[in-house]
C-alpha cells in the first residue's frame, strides 16, 4: 500500500530518477539522503540519473507479496546506471530465462504499484531490455 504523502515524497526519485550528490565528498545517493554516510555532510545537490544501465544482479520472485501476486513470477534486479550508482527495480518485458548479469537495459516509466481498486496508483521505473 502507498499513501498519498509517501507518493508525493517519492516523486523526485520515482518519477524523475533524481539522486542527491554530496556537496562535500561528491558521492551520489539514490534515493537522495539527508546525511552523507561517508562524510556526514548535510548538503546535497539534485541530479537526474541516466535512463540506461546494466544489470548487476537479479533474482526471480515466484512467491510474491499479495499486491504483486498477479505478476508472479517476475524478476527484480539491481541496475547500475553509472559507476557506483545502483538502483533496485523490476525487470520486465523479457523472458525470465534470458536475463543475464551485464545485460544492457533502459529504465521505462511504468505503474509500479496500485493500492487495491480504490487507492492511488504509484509510478516509477522498471528495467526493460535495450
Amino acid at each position: 500500500m502507498i499513501t498519498p504523502a509517501e507518493y508525493v515524497r517519492e516523486i523526485p526519485a520515482h518519477h524523475r530518477l533524481e539522486a542527491g550528490r554530496c556537496k562535500k565528498c561528491r558521492k551520489i545517493y539514490y534515493p537522495a539522503r539527508q546525511v552523507c554516510p561517508e562524510c556526514q555532510a548535510r548538503e546535497f545537490e539534485p541530479l537526474s540519473l541516466p535512463r540506461e544501465g546494466k544489470i548487476v544482479t537479479f533474482t526471480v520472485i515466484r512467491v510474491a507479496p499479495s499486491q504483486f501476486s498477479d505478476q508472479a513470477p517476475y524478476a527484480m534486479g539491481i541496475v547500475e546506471v553509472q559507476p557506483g550508482v545502483r538502483l533496485l527495480t523490476q525487470v520486465v518485458d523479457c523472458d525470465l530465462d534470458k536475463i543475464e548479469i551485464g545485460m544492457p537495459v533502459s529504465l521505462e516509466f511504468r505503474k509500479i504499484q496500485e493500492d487495491g481498486e480504490k487507492g492511488v496508483l504509484a509510478y516509477g521505473v522498471k528495467a526493460v531490455p535495450r
Binding site: D70, V92, E108, Y123
Partner: peptide, 13 residues
C-alpha cells in the same frame, strides 16, 4: 499493454 502500462506511462514515455 502489460498490467503496468496505462495511458499515463505511455504518455510519459
Amino acid at each position: 499493454p502489460s498490467s503496468d502500462e496505462d495511458t499515463i506511462s505511455i504518455s510519459v514515455e
